[in-house]
Simulated assay, not measured.
Amino acid sequence: METLQDILDAVARGVLPPADGATTVVPQASDRDAGVFAFTAHAVVFTDEDPQWVYDTLAAVPCDALAAPMNPRFLTALLERTGRTAETIDAMLVGSPLPGEPPLPLKEITDGEHPRIVYARRRRDDVRAWTTEGGVLVLGRGIAGRLEVSVEVEEGVRHRGLGRALVTAARQLAGGEPLWAQVAPGNARSMRAFQAAGYLPVGAEALLLGAG
């Protein structure tokens, strides 16, 4: 049986699920993470709920079948059934690792109580963070153990290319594995920075958050 990690590993290699209009339901890779991925004409629902309930609920959504997995009615039903919460539907991007040294000086944060580390630990494991003048870079293992990146740039130093430099540096710190990013589609500034740094959009995701 194909696992969530199998699907993500294939996508990172450029092999998307078949564009057949279907929805695949797979178990969660961890208790923490459940949700929905939408690729081109194919969706993946990762949940420990009964797959038949998922298919029956999708069939009852009054919209085109291709849109049903990300339709608010289905997501609301899934949230209510699982007792989880959600924040937004994000664009999902992936970048291949890069050789060489980061293009800017970085200092690793060793204080485990740093606010950025505390925040990242709510969604990721093995969190590491670095600072540079005006910015913070965070790496950690998220959905199905994939390596994920997030960055923060201070308002006073924006529009100078720091965001692009940080997400480029993340690819050089990835240790030879693909690096994933979740970006709100409305955050055009961040989307442009990731794409300029070589990250490719591969789909959309709705992450369902547990109570913890």
Rank of each mutant, 00 (worst) to 15 (best):
A67M: 14
E49P: 08
V44D: 06
D111V: 10
M92K: 09
A22D: 12
V138M: 11
A29F: 07
G21K: 08
L79Y: 06
V44C: 06
E49R: 04
A77E: 12
L104G: 02
L58V: 13
V15P: 06
G95K: 05
P17C: 12
V11D: 10
G21E: 08
R116A: 15
G140T: 00
K107V: 15
A120E: 07
V94R: 04
A86V: 04
V136M: 11
G21L: 05
H42R: 12
A86L: 02
F39L: 12
T24C: 10
A59M: 06
S30Q: 06
G100K: 09
M70S: 13
A77F: 10
R13V: 08
N71R: 09
F46W: 05
L106G: 03
G83L: 04
A12L: 14
A67K: 14
A68G: 01
P17S: 08
L104V: 03
L78S: 00
I109Y: 05
A59D: 10
P51H: 08
Q28H: 03
A86W: 07
A129R: 00
V45S: 06
R73L: 15
T57I: 13
P62T: 08
D125C: 11
R13M: 12
P17M: 09
M70W: 12
T57H: 13
D90M: 09
L104I: 02
G21D: 04
V36F: 10
Y119D: 13
V94N: 01
L16C: 13
T85C: 03
T132M: 13
A19R: 15
R123M: 11
T40Q: 15
D56E: 15
A120F: 05
P72A: 10
V15M: 08
V36Y: 00
P69L: 01
G35V: 07
V136E: 11
L104A: 08
L16Q: 15
D126Y: 13
P115V: 04
T85I: 04
R122T: 12
N71L: 10
L106V: 02
L137R: 09
S30L: 09
W130S: 10
L137Q: 04
L16P: 11
A29I: 13
G14Y: 02
A60N: 02
T40I: 05
L139S: 02
A41L: 14
E133Y: 10
D111P: 00
C63D: 15
F37L: 13
A60V: 12
T76L: 15
I143R: 07
P62R: 04
A43G: 11
R141I: 03
E49Q: 11
R81M: 04
R128F: 01
F74Y: 12
R141P: 07
L139C: 07
V118S: 03
V26T: 09
R128M: 02
T110P: 01
R13F: 05
S30H: 08
A38V: 02
V94D: 05
L66R: 15
L58S: 03
V44N: 05
Y119L: 12
F39R: 00
D111M: 07
D90N: 14
Q52E: 15
V54L: 04
A41Y: 11
D33W: 07
R81H: 02
D90T: 08
E87G: 09
S30W: 10
L98K: 00
W130H: 03
A29H: 09
D126N: 14
L78R: 05
F37K: 05
A43Y: 02
S96K: 07
L98Q: 01
G135C: 13
L58N: 10
V26P: 03
L137M: 11
G35N: 11
A68D: 00
